[in-house]
Computed example of a mutant assay.
Amino acid sequence: MGWFGRKRDPQDANEMLRQYNEAEAARLAGLSSGSNLAPTTVSASFSSAEFAVEDVFTITGRGQVVTGTVASGVIRVGDRIVVLRDGADVGSSEITGIEMFRKKATEAAAGTLAGLLLRGRVDVARGDVIRTSASA
């Protein structure tokens, strides 16, 4: 014991990630509870999945990466996708990789935060919606 009480150990990285995930889940639950600030997505047919884009960047030697949340359905590696901006088709590509919290995955289900590696260069911006093609 010192002057200020018991010394506290620095917070574990896993504990920090758990607290962040809980706060993010609470934030998303608040957005989807009828608030005007909820992200809008284009209505999807039952056979397609949607992904709301939050950030876009390029990794040299790998390709273009988009990060965001899977809004509905299941997105899988190899799916053909179309990029929608204000309901209009902007471009198309294919998903060559999925990563969630620095771990590779073959699919991402609704409500999951993920990064998608896209084949080629596509015009994607924050706020766009990525939808799997009907032919996939």
Rank of each mutant, 00 (worst) to 15 (best):
N14I: 04
A29T: 05
A25C: 04
R131E: 07
L37F: 11
T40D: 12
D128Q: 14
T69V: 15
D55F: 08
A49K: 01
D12W: 01
G68H: 05
N21V: 03
S72I: 09
G111A: 06
I81M: 05
E15N: 00
V122M: 10
V42M: 12
A49F: 01
G120A: 11
I95F: 03
E99M: 06
S133T: 05
Y20I: 06
T67P: 06
F4D: 11
D89G: 00
R8H: 05
I81A: 01
L117W: 07
A71P: 02
L28Q: 13
S72F: 04
V129A: 11
V53F: 05
V122D: 05
S35V: 06
V56Q: 11
R62N: 03
R102C: 05
I81S: 01
A44S: 07
L117D: 06
W3T: 02
I95Q: 02
S33C: 10
R126H: 10
F4P: 00
A110Y: 10
A71H: 09
T112W: 03
A26M: 14
V129D: 09
G63T: 07
R8V: 09
R8W: 03
V56D: 11
A29E: 13
A38L: 12
R119L: 02
R18A: 09
A105K: 08
R80T: 10
L117A: 11
L28S: 08
V77L: 08
A13P: 04
A114K: 06
Q11S: 04
T106V: 13
A114I: 09
A110I: 13
M16Q: 05
L31A: 02
T67G: 10
A13S: 08
A134Q: 15
V66A: 14
S47E: 14
G34N: 12
F46M: 06
T132L: 13
A110S: 10
G30A: 15
G34D: 09
E15W: 00
R27S: 13
L84D: 05
E94D: 07
T69K: 15
R80S: 12
L37N: 11
P39I: 13
D79W: 01
V122K: 09
M16V: 06
T132R: 04
K104N: 13
I95L: 07
G127N: 15
L116G: 03
G73D: 03
R121K: 15
R80P: 04
D9I: 01
L84T: 08
L118H: 03
V66Q: 07
L31T: 00
R8Y: 01
A25Y: 00
A44V: 09
A26D: 11
L31H: 04
A44T: 07
A13N: 02
V83W: 00
N14Q: 12
M16Y: 05
R126D: 10
S133K: 05
V83Q: 02
I59Y: 02
K104L: 15
G2I: 09
S43N: 08
R76L: 12
